[in-house]
Design a protein around this nucleic acid. Structure first.
Length: 562
RNA sequence: CGGGGCGUAGCGCAGCCCGGUAGCGCGCCUGCUUUGGGAGCAGGAUGCCGGAGGUUCGAAUCCUCUCGCCCCGACCA
């Protein structure tokens, strides 16, 4: 491909709307443009990247026996009503009516439609297992699109769905996907982790996410270098360091106007880890008192999994339900349901005295109060691994893929059943598995760039090699360039040749920005000695190579880089 | 949905407080020179000042409403 014939609108300046590194670079390098909030146009270079990613996705999906199909993105409401998600999902779903006033929606995912198809077509255990996938547009009216193509309202997803006769079959399909995903992300040149995750509104019991560490990521993951424990903070367990027993007697302490842990801790000059925070929440079942150690934070999702949706109690509610002013609540002697984080199951603590301006020192769990013990705190730096007790790390990460065991969540309401060997009717056991190609691209840029621009991993770069003739008005430069260009193409290499009548500086700057991994520079100086230069974009290393060895050298360099 | 910021030339911005012919830099077009890291000189084009109302002799500027975009938070199969 000739640069002069390709639409590559690079920018010198950085558009002010961009914040994330990948967003800035993909705008500047001419990969994408924004149409509206969360809606992006992929320009020729950007589209080539996505297509290379999609090719890898297809190869690895076909390798596990998945079959590509294509489903509509316009769906009748009826199917979504049957699974309940028409009502469960709120503003995030785009809804519309057709000309006959029938309710329709735009697909945000395809469990319903895939299951509908299976319910119509799968009759016998002999038809199973099946894995169907597509690379298809999804639409979600996100509350807050952000970070360029990392979070958009319309995006392409590789989504696959497995149908099995039993849990063992699902286990196999799930593991096949996990293995395929590892291969895919590795081929795409990403650093990533597979972590335990929250199944969320997808339902089902078991799920993992694939996470690419990056400061631009929206999720935090917990990592243990020693034993390999990995989990999204939404579900991550951790062991908080224990404080030593101070041997306090149970006694009230006067703490006038000191309400928060920070205030009381400062006033008494005692570490926050010796405090118990008592928080009152209102759930569907009624008020619930939640106890968290003073130096920790409640993870709301963990609480939601136990008591369902909740809100914090108002000041008046605290007073009427617990009979004490907020700020002086203690865990002792309340009639409401009490949940406590496991990290305060042992030790000796300070908390509110259940009367204004007083706290109590010397509180012992199970002696001075009773509670249901749960994991409620948010894992943080300084905590230890729940498996092997070494210090954990926390990293921000981009979710690039996920896998869910769904079981019968969709097959039952949509009556997707089959007859087993014994003639018994049984629901299909399902899994669903997603990957966002644009997020792979963005994560690749986030993880691989320098001050000059993008450094694409070789398998997803828009081209393998960029040829840079420095002076297109020099006949010999052009003859050699075209010869190398034709030669590489004949050897199956995708080549971009910068044939523009621009000064060398402009070409170097654009080449670095665009980020094709190998540059072949053809200049008059080196040519006098029969040499051209082969440059690795990522380390800017330049080798001068005799003309006749260029093709061989290019292949050698391609093998050296990631 | 809560909080904050911003809409003026293709991009980045000034002008607004204090109303009076819409500017700067980069980019773009033409010509000449230049050609190993975003060239130099000369000439040129480009604006519904986000939109609608209002105040005024007169509005980019003041007032009201509205739309859009970004950031933080909530939310996120």
């Amino acid at each position: 491909m000739l640069f002069s014939k390709m639409f590559i609108p690079t920018l010198r300046g950085i558009p002010s709307e961009a914040e994330a590194v990948s967003h800035k670079l993909m705008l500047r390098a001419g990969y994408v443009r924004q149409l509206a909030a969360g809606l992006y146009i992929f320009l020729p270079l950007g589209w080539r990247v996505l297509n290379r990613i999609n090719r890898i996705l297809k190869e690895e999906m076909e390798a596990i026996g998945a079959q590509e199909i294509s489903m509509p993105i316009l769906h009748p409401a009826e199917i979504w009503q049957k699974t309940g998600r028409w009502h469960e999902i709120k503003e995030e779903m785009f809804r519309l009516k057709d000309r006959t006033d029938r309710d329709m929606c735009l697909g945000m995912t395809h469990e319903e439609i895939m299951t509908w198809l299976a319910s119509k077509e799968i009759r016998s255990y002999r038809d199973l297992p099946q894995i169907w996938y597509q690379i298809q547009t999804k639409l979600r009216d996100e509350a807050r699109p952000k970070s360029g193509i990392l979070r958009t309202r319309e995006f392409i997803m590789k989504d696959s769905y497995s149908f099995d006769i039993d849990e063992d079959g699902l286990e196999k399909s799930y593991n096949l996907h996990a293995e395929a995903y590892h291969k895919i992300f590795k081929r795409c040149g990403l650093r990533f982790y597979q972590v335990e995750s929250d199944p969320g509104m997808m339902g089902g019991a078991f799920a993992h996410e694939f996470m690419a560490p990056s400061p631009a990521g929206e999720d935090e993951i917990v990592l243990c270098d020693k034993c390999g424990y990995t989990a999204n903070v939404e579900v991550a367990r951790s062991v908080s360091p224990m404080s030593s027993d101070m041997g306090w007697e149970y006694e009230e302490v006067h703490t006038p106007q000191k309400r928060t842990v920070a205030e009381v801790s400062g006033f008494l000059n005692i570490e926050p880890a010796y405090f118990i925070k008592s928080l009152l929440f209102m759930a569907a079942e009624g008020p619930v008192l939640v106890l968290i150690r003073g130096d920790q934070e409640l993870h709301e999702k963990k609480l939601i999994r136990i008591i369902g949706p909740f809100r914090t109690a108002l000041k008046e509610e605290v007073l009427s339900i617990l009979g004490v002013e907020a700020g002086f609540i203690g865990p002792m002697e309340h009639k409401v349901r009490i949940l406590a984080d496991q990290s305060i199951k042992k030790g000796i603590y300070i908390s509110g005295a259940n009367k204004s301006d007083f706290h109590v020192k010397g509180i012992k769990p199970d002696i001075h109060f009773k509670a249901e013990w749960h994991d409620l705190h948010t894992a943080k730096e300084g905590d230890a691994c729940p498996e092997c007790n070494t210090l954990i790390k926390i990293e921000k990460s981009i979710e690039i893929g996920n896998i869910f065991k769904l079981g019968i969540k969709y097959s039952t309401p949509l009556n997707a059943v089959f007859l087993d060997k014994d003639g018994q009717e049984k629901p299909l056991i399902m899994g669903s598995y997603g990957i966002g190609p644009a997020r792979i691209a963005a994560a690749a840029v986030e993880q691989n760039n320098d001050k000059d621009g993008i450094i694409w991993p070789k398998n997803i770069a828009p081209f393998d090699v960029e040829i840079i003739p420095l002076n297109i008005n020099d006949q010999r430069t052009m003859d050699i360039s075209e010869l190398i260009y034709a030669n590489l193409k004949n050897n199956g290499i995708e080549v971009l040749m910068d044939d523009r009548d621009e000064r060398p500086g402009v070409k170097f700057k654009d080449a670095d920005l665009i980020g094709i991994p190998i540059h072949i520079i053809i200049g008059e100086k080196a040519l006098k000695d029969g040499l051209v230069e082969v440059k690795k974009r990522h380390i800017k290393e330049i080798r001068k190579i005799p003309l006749e060895d260029v093709i061989k050298e290019t292949f050698a360099v391609m093998n050296e880089i990631e």
